[in-house]
Each structure stands twice: as C-alpha cells, then as structure tokens.
Amino acid sequence: MIARMLAIAGAEFRIARRNRWALTAAVLMLLFALALTFAGSAPTGTLGVDLLTVSVASMTTLAVYLTPLLALLLSFDAVAGERERGSLALLLSYRLTRGELLAGKLAAHLAVLALAMAAGFGAAGLAAAAAGGAGPESLAALLRLIGSSVLLGATFLALGYAVSALAGSTAGSAGMAVGIWLVLVVLYDLGLLGAVGADDGGFFTQTLFPWLLALNPADAFRLWNVAGSGQVALASGMTGAAGALPGGAPLASLLLWPVAAFALARLAVSRTAP
C-alpha cells in the first residue's frame, strides 16, 4: 500500500518539478515576501519590534491569499485531468485504491508547497534578520508561519481534490476552485466585516465573531500566527479577535481542516466513476 502511494507521489513530484511548478511557487513566495518585508519596514521604529517581526506579520497577510491559491492551482486537475486523459480508469485498474491515489498526490503536492514556503519565507526572513535584526521570538514566529502555511496548504489541496472529483471536467474544476478561493479567503471576511459593522459591538461582535473567524481555515491561520506572538499581533494590528478565543481554538481549526477536507475529497472521489 505504501509502495503504491509512494509510486504515485514520486511521479507527481516529478511532474510538478518538470512543469517548473515548484520553482515558480518558491520564486513567487520569495519575491512577494521580500517586497512586503522591505516595503513594510516603516513601523519598526514606532512599534519597537525587530524587522523580522514586521516581515512575519506582512508575510502572514500574504500567505493567507497566496497559499490557498497555489494549493488550488496544484490540485484542481488532480482527478479531473486523469479522468479526461483516460488514465484514471487505467490507474485504478491496478491494485491502487482511490485513497492511495489521493494520498500519493497529496504527499507530492504538499512537499512542493512546503519547499516553496520554506524557501520563500525562509529566504525573506533571513534577509530581514540580516538587515534589521531578529530575536528568538521573531524566529519562532517565522517557523510558526512556515508550519501553519503548510497546514493551510494541505487544507486547500484537499479541497482542490474534492472539487476535481466532483466537477465533470478540468475547466469546471478550475471554476469551482476559484469559487472556493473567493468564498473562503475573500468573501467570508467581507461578510463578517459587514456583520460586525451592522452589529455595532453587540453579541455577534463580542462572542460569535471570533468563533466564526476560527471556523474558516484562512482566518484560523491568521489568528494562530497573531496569537502566537504578541509582537506580530502588535505589528499586524489584529489583537482583539485573537484574545477573545480559547488559545487552542485556531490551532485546532488549522489541524482539523486538512483532515476534514481530505475526508471530503476521499468521499468525492469514491463517488466518481472513472
């Protein structure tokens, strides 16, 4: 079972490398992270934190948008593409199970994302540390950012597999993936923002809002990175919501989402006729 999964993972990783996917993702991460770090270096003096802290705060905001997008781009044709090529039926005619196929693809795509995150954020972090100093706390924040980005990526990879299995074609799957990104990363926050504005500091804002934030994987990612470091919270100006929740809630959300999303993908792919 492990051998078949690794066989799929090896082929997928090779494909990602050959399509320059891994390289593109890493370079994209690095460029954005560097630009944000040095363009956003103004508040260091006023807030009294080192440059790496500011850098991590900026990169957290960046990762919320970019990580789900990269993950969905990697995964949206994972099942639909195989079905269109006719190779899904062939692969499954071997002893490979649908779960092994998904797990193999996830392992490869997650490795690509992790490498991109580590390279991009790591390099930008090192540059920030060299230019403006770093401490044990900001270094820990950087590692937390990389680790939680991988978890966020795993969630959206699995969601991508799910839409890929449910959609009738790769084009349909791409459309659904864009929809998922828009809803979870952009519209969800806008909706909450509107509700908070209308509520004017009442029950919704005080009690419900932080939980609704933690329920969304992208917001949980933001919350956990902010809650993990008081300085990052200071630099990102996002202290209120994080303080209103039990400390473990955003982390639990970050850890549960990949599992739930993979289960959803597994269910979706078991219902597709190859």
Partner: peptide, 10 residues
C-alpha cells in the same frame, strides 16, 4: 482504455 493519454511531462 479507449483514447488513453498519459501525462505529457513524464
């Protein structure tokens, strides 16, 4: 399978 294609990058 009918009309089988493989991943073009491999």
């Amino acid at each position: 399978p009918e009309a089988l294609a493989f991943h073009p990058a491999l």
